[in-house]
Design a binder for these strands. Structure first.
Lengths: 167, 167
DNA sequence: CACATTGTTCATTTTTGTTTGAACTAACTG
DNA sequence: CAGTTAGTTCAAACAAAAATGAACAATGTG
């Protein structure tokens, strides 16, 4: 490997393109950036684990995007580092169990918002208590009560969701 | 109402601001534009139905935003036109039953994506059948099979979700 | 019908969020 | 340890999405 050009990092074939575009659309629904979909999509359809550099070359994205994308995918539990290869560089493979994917998304993207929502509602309840006009105060506390009910429902739904998606 | 200035469309009071900001955050999680949260938030905390013009004045948003926002909220089933007022202009009030809100969101924002996802997976299955190398084809059809399983799970989860949120 | 009021549409501007790439740290290697 | 390779960080460039506001129906009113 000296006077030989780097083994051809060819373009994505049509099927790979189809899969990548499927996941690009998929992650957009979830509100995640496109590069996340590209990276996960290519890993999903690859028979062997890929390195950061493979992703950069085959997807034509920057090292920065690939690095940040992998970080997020790891935090979501959607990719893991492949075992074995005693190489220096690390190779990644996708998690493909829906349970794990949904679990990670719920944990990282949904729960935090639910929590901060509850906090805000508590502050809202306080503000409401200070309202002078009794009629207005009554109306407001009914609405706050309604929000609390929503949050409780949300909290009850997530575990069920996870169970259902866990097959 | 002649030499009298238009009754003061005052600024949002602190509580209203809190509620609006709560919903602004809420809709962002759902991937909807901020103005949707502002409009719904103000309606949610208002004791009387509000007109498009009320929203423009109190939220300092453009007529265009208010019009488009109301259209989307109507399509989601999150606001409805108030009955009664024999006025020319229409007044809006919020739907506050979680069931209705979740139902609208699922119908308008989730189902369409699930459907188009299924279509794409079908195309993917076709492309896979044309692959020459048997080992590669086997691997790919396992992955496509996996995607189909995901979609089935998704389809099964939505009705349960709706039921749970319907109290 | 001239005028006013209510609401919609859509090209342009603004805002927001994502990607890039150069500078950097860390870890191996001859 | 000088040089190479792997990966991270973050300010700046860029792209996508949302908001604006002027032009435009549509409908009511004297």
């Amino acid at each position: 490997m000296d006077d030989l050009l780097q083994a051809d990092q060819h373009e994505l074939d049509p099927l790979e393109l189809q899969v990548v575009s499927f996941f690009v659309d998929g992650v957009r629904v979830l509100g995640l950036p496109r590069s996340i979909g590209e990276i996960y999509g290519l890993l999903f359809i690859s028979q062997t684990p890929l390195s950061l550099d493979d992703l950069v070359q085959r997807l034509h994205i920057s090292k920065g995007s690939a690095s940040q994308g992998l970080r997020m995918l790891k935090s979501l539990g959607a990719v893991r580092e492949a075992e074995g290869g005693a190489e220096r560089r690390t190779y990644y493979e996708p998690a493909i169990e829906l349970k794990r994917l949904a679990g990670g998304f719920i944990r990282e993207q949904i729960r935090p918002h639910l929590e901060s929502g509850k906090t805000k509602i508590n502050r809202l309840a306080e503000t409401t208590r200070d309202i002078d006009d009794p009629a207005r105060r009554k109306f407001l506390s009914e609405r706050v009560e309604r929000l609390e009910t929503w949050m409780r429902s949300g909290g009850r739904v997530l575990p069920v969701l996870q169970k259902l998606l866990g097959q």
